[in-house]
């Protein structure tokens, strides 16, 4: 087919084309330039944000030792005796993000397998929109759901759990990012060609074997990318952890006690009355920069993994 089309093209004499012009410039060039401008807006915004972060954080590190900042485990910038050990906040963020992944990963992957391989079209048509509604719920609603519903349930189970705790926030955050994992993983799995599934079925594979040994490996790059995207989302999530996990920068991985995440700290300071230009105010930028480094790292990791598995599998 293709060869035919080519030889057909070649046999015809080249004929002059009417180029559309705009004030003497080819329209294509104008459109190209316009699109470039649109892309430039988002790139410039990013550069601007990073520049401000770095600028303000640099001032912060003019007063506070960078080494103390990244190795300290005590975080009390708003107290009289100030400590700036960001690890206390990092522990809170890592704990809640990992907790959320423990909820979202298995549930998300299993529901992706169900929807992609097992569910009849009719059921998928029902379940998918419902899952996607979860993604549309405002995070403040999730936050209060955690504080007012999940936490009391947890405290019924064990009285040792504090009113503010990482566990409740993790569970609800896991539910929040679950649709992201399931829907992106499902897309990746459905993109696996039918012919691969048929090849496996033709060898006597069961549906479970086809799902776990053919479809998931073939869709792995997309699945892993969905995990990492969800993880970045959990790291950056603010409302749920601010409301449900507390504002006590404990350097701990214990999910039952109050903690504070990087995002929750930023909220705390921005709501408080620290005047612009003070050291307390500048801590926001130092923490935000740390957070940015985390999510940047996750994004790079996801790109690396997608590229790596693509090489191996396509």
């Amino acid at each position: 087919m293709e060869e035919q089309a080519n030889s057909h093209d070649r046999s015809e004499a080249p004929r002059p084309r009417n180029r559309r012009m705009w004030h003497g410039v080819p329209l294509e060039r104008v459109i190209g330039f316009f699109l470039f401008l649109c892309a430039a807006v988002s790139v410039l915004t990013t550069i601007g944000i990073v520049a401000v972060l770095v600028w303000e954080a640099a001032q912060f590190f003019g007063e506070i030792s960078f080494f103390d900042f990244i190795t300290g485990t005590k975080w009390t910038p708003l107290f009289a005796s100030k400590h700036f050990g960001v690890l206390a906040l990092v522990a809170g963020t890592v704990q809640t993000a990992i907790g959320a992944m423990i909820v979202a990963l298995p549930l998300g992957l299993l529901s992706a397998i169900f929807m992609s391989e097992y569910a009849p079209n009719r059921i998928r048509g029902l379940v998918k929109p419902v899952l996607e509604v979860l993604a549309g719920i405002p995070t403040i609603v999730y936050g209060f759901f955690a504080l007012l519903f999940i936490t009391p349930l947890l405290r019924d189970v064990s009285g040792g759990i504090s009113v503010f705790n990482g566990l409740s926030a993790s569970i609800v955050m896991g539910i929040m990012i679950l649709p992201m994992v399931s829907s992106l993983s499902e897309d990746a799995m459905r993109a696996v060609p039918r012919s691969l599934r048929e090849g496996a079925y033709a060898l006597g594979a069961t549906k479970l074997e086809v799902s776990t040994q053919v479809v998931i490996p073939a869709a792995l790059s997309g699945i892993v990318a969905s995990f990492i995207l969800a993880m970045s989302r959990a790291i950056g999530e603010t409302m749920i952890v601010t409301i449900a996990a507390g504002q006590n920068p404990n350097f701990t991985l214990n999910p039952l006690v109050p903690i504070e995440t990087m995002t929750a700290f930023i909220v705390q300071v921005s709501q408080g009355d620290s005047p612009t230009g003070t050291l307390e105010f500048k801590t926001i930028f130092a923490v935000a920069l740390t957070l940015f480094v985390f999510t940047l790292f996750m994004n790079l990791l996801s790109q690396y993994i997608v590229a790596r598995f693509r090489e191996a599998y396509e």
Binding site: S195, L196, E198, G199, Y201, A202, L203, G204, A312, E314
Partner: peptide, 16 residues
């Protein structure tokens, strides 16, 4: 399917 094998129109090796 284990006793009656099938070869398809387009080669469909697994990405393994």
């Amino acid at each position: 399917r284990y006793q009656i094998g099938m070869v398809f129109q387009r080669p469909n090796p697994f990405p393994k």
